[in-house]
């Protein structure tokens, strides 16, 4: 073997070993588990497609699927719009803009449990800031997390507060748009709106695709907020009123680590995996011809 080959493999060996032991091996084993009845203590028993059959008839699975879809379909586009809006504002070359950039970005560098507690308090129906403000405007606020209808919108509202992270990515892309292009469009008589849709948006489309995919993948895996905010004092009570915040990952967690049904939980995890890969692939395909990469194809 050539020395360079041997040395190269030696340097990348930590990742290769980690990939085999911590990623590929466990993935194969979890696929196997999904065809077994398995608890933590007893050895897995092959039951074929039984877990998937059970999953296809499990109302809680559909509930978690619906909740997750609701959260993603509403939350991701709203988050993208807000982040893009913020980035356009923050791209303005005016004094003190750095202060505002910091202000909007700050909520997204923090601790999910601490933020969940803050929002639990903000959303408190009786004493929370949100409903106090609504009361001051003469509106009776909803019960938020204690209401089946409002629990998910409450979590989406909270997620919008952390849109600053995506805004930073949009901002970096906006700063890469050549001024000459926008000025040329202006000279040609394009108005602000036209300039945005014909020049700016195509130029930042890679950032849009990135934020869309990351936002989607993140939303499909939402867990901590639901676990911390909609769980009562008793373990196992997570999931909100009438399971309205039982998201897929929360359901997988409950099945695996509260009820120790490792086989069924693995089948649920694989359903989620297929969903995530499918959504990502779909986003890629749909955007393939619409995303503009500077200097040709990606």
């Amino acid at each position: 073997m050539k020395a360079e080959t041997r040395q190269g493999w030696l340097f990348v060996a930590p990742w290769v070993i980690g990939f085999v032991l911590l990623t590929a091996g466990p993935m194969i084993y979890s696929l196997y588990l999904s065809f077994t009845a398995s608890t933590l203590l007893s050895p897995p028993q092959w039951i074929g497609l039984e877990n998937y059959r059970r999953l296809a008839a499990d109302p809680l699975f559909y509930r978690s699927l619906g909740n997750t879809a609701y959260y993603a379909v509403l939350g991701v586009p709203l988050g993208l719009l807000l982040a893009l809006g913020l980035a356009l504002l923050l791209n303005a070359p005016v004094r003190g803009i750095g202060f505002f950039r910091t202000l909007f970005f700050l909520p997204s560098v923090t601790n999910a449990v601490a933020l969940s507690l803050l929002w639990l308090w903000l959303l408190n129906p009786e004493f929370g800031l949100l409903n106090s403000a609504l009361r001051a405007c003469g509106v009776a606020g909803p019960l938020w997390l204690q209401s089946e209808a409002w629990a998910k919108p409450a979590l989406i509202l909270m997620s919008l507060w952390t849109a600053g992270g995506q805004a930073v990515i949009f901002l970096a892309a906006l700063q890469g748009v050549p001024r000459e292009l926008i000025e040329a469009a202006a000279i040609d008589g394009a108005g602000v709106v036209r300039r945005f849709f014909a020049v700016t948006l195509p130029m930042i489309s890679p950032a849009l695709l990135f934020n869309l995919i990351m936002g989607l993948v993140g939303a499909l895996q939402v867990f901590t907020q639901a676990f911390v905010m909609t769980g009562g004092v008793q373990p196992g009570s997570e999931g909100g009123p009438n399971q309205s915040t039982l998201f897929i990952v929360l359901y997988v967690y409950k099945k695996a680590f509260q009820e120790f049904e490792m086989g069924y939980a693995s089948a649920l995890a694989w359903a989620l995996f297929v969903l995530i890969v499918g959504c990502t692939a779909l986003a890629w395909r749909v955007s393939r011809d619409r995303v503009h990469y500077e200097g040709g194809a990606a």
Partner: peptide, 13 residues
């Protein structure tokens, strides 16, 4: 890009 949920159960075991 891999979601951690497909590996977390075997890793825990």
């Amino acid at each position: 890009m891999l979601p951690g949920q497909v590996t977390m159960i075997p890793l825990y075991m």
